[in-house]
Design a protein around this nucleic acid. Sequence first.
RNA 1: GCCCGGAUGGUGAAAUCGGUAGACACAAGGGACUUAAAAUCCCUCGGCCUUUGGCCAUGCGGGUUCGAUUCCCGCUCCGGGCACCA
Length: 867
Amino acid sequence: MDAHYRPEIIEPEAQQHWEEKQIFRAVEDPAKPKYYCLSMFPYPSGKLHMGHVRNYTIGDVLARYHRMKGFNVLQPMGWDAFGLPAENAAIANDVAPAGWTYANIDYMRGQLKRLGLAIDWSRELATCKPDYYRWEQWLFTRLFEKGLIYKKMATVNWDPVDCTVLANEQVIDGRGWRSGALVEKRDIPMYFMRITAYAEELLSELDHLPGWPERVKTMQRNWIGKSFGVEIHFPLSPSPAGARGEGGEGEAEPVLKVFTTRADTLFGVTYVAIAAEHPLAQQAADGNPELTAFINECKQGSVAEADLATMEKKGMDTGLKVYHPFTNEAVPVFVANYVLMGYGEGAVMAVPAHDERDFAFAKKYGLPIKPVIKPEDGDLAQPLAEAYVEHGVLFDSGDFSGRTSAEAIEAMALVLKNLKLGGKRTTFRLRDWGISRQRYWGCPIPIVHCPTCGDVPVPDDQLPVVLPEDVKIDVGSPIKKMPSFYQCACPKCGGPAERETDTMDTFVESSWYYARYACPDNASAMLDERANHWLPVDQYIGGIEHAILHLLYARFFHKLMRDVGLVKSNEPFANLLTQGMVIADTYFREAGDGKKQWINPADVEIRDGVAVLKADAQPVRVGGTEKMSKSKNNGVDPQALIDQYGADTARLFMMFAAPPEQSLEWSDAGVEGANRFLRRLWKAVHEHVEAGISEAYSGGDLPTTAKDFRRQLHQTIAKVTDDIERRKQFNTAIAAIMELMNALAKLEASDAASRAVKQEALEAVVLMLSPIVPHICRTLIKALKPGARMVGSPWPAADEAALARDEIEFMLQVNGKLRGKLRVPADAAREAIEAAALASPELQKFMEGKPAKKVVVVPGRLVNVVV
RNA sequence: GCCCGGAUGGUGAAAUCGGUAGACACAAGGGACUUAAAAUCCCUCGGCCUUUGGCCAUGCGGGUUCGAUUCCCGCUCCGGGCACCA
């Protein structure tokens, strides 16, 4: 074998071999347990970044490990190919989004192959291809017919200068990113998926996902936000004395509905707040120019929840009154900018004494603050300095005074129900999923608008509705100006009609791709029996940033597909590994018009503590440290690293840098060390092979040094196995192997038995490293064992007998402080250990002759004496 | 603002179920080899002190415990998500 490690030779050789022999092609095989290992597919933004390398190496390690453990492994790859950046790039570079996307896919596929991933490339898919999205359109028509997709008005960000809808990302400080115009809220019709119909199941099934991280399940639970509360109706006109609730059936009087989880505070209501778009607000604004102006002001700004939550809370009295359902007192109605139409009832009851936000609002507008809840064991100091938001005991609440919050909620709900003014209700924070996008580069929504038949889904035999790819992009979607696309005949009546020109949210494509990988070649059905063979995904790996939206939508889609008979399982992903983000510094310069131009960290260097652009040596401004992304241009391309050191070094370095779940601030400090380790490994195998290979040790007497080393070897095998399989923490597995190699280098014995142990160790090390650094290991295993193949070799097993030890070292503590150590026979009894510890000079010294009050013996670990 | 995480030497990190804080690396310093450099190998490497020993130390302030990086309470700062970035 070559005396030098040459990744530039062995890596292409290995990759060519894997590709030619189709080593990683997955074929359904009922004889073997299956293992479907899936990493989240990339958006083809142009180049890979370090986050991709991390994600796909983690997946590859797990896929290759399970292959060695005897599983039939499927690891596919594809492209989340529709999306906004393609349109932006198209405008910037005057190219079509399709061409830009396909070119990026070709380049990035080459980069992925250069990483040596054990992927079945025959299953590759791209979501922008009609043979993929036609099935999404097909399912859309099924769901539309089932009533699971419906149309309603929804609020979007509107750029009044460019006359386009903006993504939240494109609204910067309330202005359109390109035009700089103040963004407005505008209501437009959109299609919605009824995810709320599955809210209960999406919530309860989380309890049956033991393979998911607790934090992700917590985030999803909070997002779904099931809450038990009370719906309360505030009548719009006062009740004639005693008449409330005695109206006949069907004579529902006009009311303002609110929902609250704190019905116990009902007697503390001093106003109600409604959204600017609420019909009552519109009604009150008629002939009230001041209120009209305020309502218009509320319509400014973005629709993003983060913006709404942080903006200044403003309101205005409408002059309207509603009437308290119990006391019949008049309650003023305010329009408030923090209340959203389309979320709940678009109205909330306000109790300043017991809600922080209402308290601040009441102070600002001089509204009364009326406390009605006090702590069980005391009184409130009045006037209140801040809202008292805890549960407690009611007072000044009519017949309900003296009851606890919990009792009062039950009792009030019952009374409200009898009055036909509300009652108990369970609500979800989760809202239906608006899937319409007014963009070009997405999957066309398969609906035809007919003046006589209404919204007609496109029939199966007319699918797919193909998105034209040869287009020119400027402001707005080109298919909206393309009669050849939208003019059509109504599928029902044959009359002239127009095609829907909105496309679908790209989250729709990524909600079912994992299933399509099972049968990407099926031209006559969305999924077939192969989907049930492979699903659910055994291990899903992707960034923590997808903890809520993507993962919730994919779970929802799985249930939709189950309920139309496409899959049998309830959940798509049995085990989830949420990779921490690779983050990097962001740098920018402000152009004359105040817009930020983001500069890649690779083009920046720090001189005398100042960040400057390498090209002109002039300073740049430092932004935050954020996840690598195209929009902030802080993605670090792994290509230079791979070109210089090879794929194995890049993979090893990434896995050694930090545990997978932890976020990682990018730095290439330490790459040298990873490469150095691989060179040392190569050298160690080379020297051993030059001295003559032997059979691996399989029994017989060993010198003490070899026996001790062999114990460490098998401890390492046990640890590495546990680290990869259970803990999914690769940095400690690598560290353990490094320690073993350091010990091997110090093992000087050259007798036959010791050499057999060295052979055993090197074979085991090479096999244990092969999921992480497959190229070098493929060459090394061939050198160690002529005729051996890396792919197909079994994972090393720890030899229990080798793990046995004669003595154990105990830590000795006095009052919890380490004072000494003690070696005792491994089979020593507790009493003997305690006696030996108390007799030791170290403990004697620190006990200073005082008697032991207590002796704690932790088996196999330590003795702590309390004096 | 709300929800979810994180913080340990100069740096990345380790300590897996409450039991030796800093494994394994990087950087730095010293040395060997070399005409020289690179590469390689060896040594030192949390802070302080009265240095064969001791004290302090895991973002900050409290608490529980024989014992806390680990559990609880209250903060600070950083990262992610907030429904049209993906």
